[in-house]
Design a protein around this nucleic acid. Sequence first.
DNA 1: ATTGTGGGATTGTTGAACGATTCTACGATA
DNA 2: TATCGTAGAATCGTTCAACAATCCCACAAT
Lengths: 223, 223
Amino acid sequence: MSTLAQNKADLERASTAQKVADMLRERVLLGELEPGLRLSEEAIGGALGVSRNTLREAFRLLTRDRILVHEHSRGVFVRRPTADDVRDLYAARRVIECGALRLWNDVSDAQREAVRAPVRQAVARAEKKDFSKTGSANIQFHRGIVGLAGSARLSDESDRLFAELMLAFRVAHEVEAFHQTYLPWNRKIVELLNNGTVEQAVQQLDEYFDAAEQDLASRLVAD
Amino acid sequence: MSTLAQNKADLERASTAQKVADMLRERVLLGELEPGLRLSEEAIGGALGVSRNTLREAFRLLTRDRILVHEHSRGVFVRRPTADDVRDLYAARRVIECGALRLWNDVSDAQREAVRAPVRQAVARAEKKDFSKTGSANIQFHRGIVGLAGSARLSDESDRLFAELMLAFRVAHEVEAFHQTYLPWNRKIVELLNNGTVEQAVQQLDEYFDAAEQDLASRLVAD
DNA sequence: ATTGTGGGATTGTTGAACGATTCTACGATA
DNA sequence: TATCGTAGAATCGTTCAACAATCCCACAAT
């Protein structure tokens, strides 16, 4: 049955616009296309070998994901989050993740494990002085938390929030170093959860958000 | 300064695709285009006098809003929420709205008033046997709750969840009667908030979700 | 009843075209 | 020197026509 599900993904080949959008998303998140950069329809379309119409469809997709911003008759630009955006982003995360974390005792073991595992891996890597994937590990931890809610829609929206946050890190020139700072926090949260003190874990998560928001926002005031 | 903000809205005339999307969204939400209906590019584009390309951009917009679903090489259809969708929707609402409501004591008076006012109006109308806008009043109440979080992103996403829920009501043939049932719940929640017993209000909201979810899901099992 | 197999309809994508809007650079004016 | 206005270039917004790819439906064969 699992093979059928796999094949399904192969059969549902994405449209050209979807594939272009995926590629552009990756480039933006990898930092190859800097925030604020204007994406010319002609230049990008020519380079990728797709028509303007198809490319515009891809742009719409990414605009909805908040990766790009669309200005009428001016074109699309890689989003450049401001300090206000960061505040909004963290206000949303606080509600979503703290709310999800409070469900800790009502969810499946698999869901709980999706929260613990990323931290365990990050700790293991940190002990080996391997800081290569600390960023994605931190994201995985928070994805796990959102997953406790058991809503695909909420998880999808959170992924969009995380992507936008990545752009903010990029603007703040703090892509990797940033996440690394907060591993101790994540450990503490998992520890509190394992102790059965869920409310304390929620409070700890809330403090993490305070610190992270302030840290990031302070780096975004200057241009 | 307020006039400037108004003019801005005029200046930022929406693109054709955006206007088409807005019109289609309204038609769908009003029930003129039934869930499950396939939207032919040629038919709709011809009727609205826009090109296929522009129409397809509008479709993409609405697909991201979960108003339409897009099946490759088959076309776009008005979304037809299933019982599983309803479960997912309420799982998301539970986390978002209960989380937002817990912020009651930390927000501005204006934000709190945005929660109370819709219930007050609904009560006034109900006393006059005027049940015309009870649906939108219920939605306004919940929009107000989400607004407590103070995140435009979260409010936008919630609007999408509400729109999707409207479609579910449509499928369940319960557009107006549904909301009406839950006015007493809303009153009780506001009452508990005014008493300063926020946690009890949150619990009441959670029970509302349980009841609403079960009611709606039970009407969606049959086709 | 199930399984090919056509043809017809619809979508996916392209390329060109042209009006509308924005940007840029240069010169006029104070 | 600084501000303003303007013509021309560049780019976006939208349409149209075309064709390949895909799906749907009816009909025939087993």
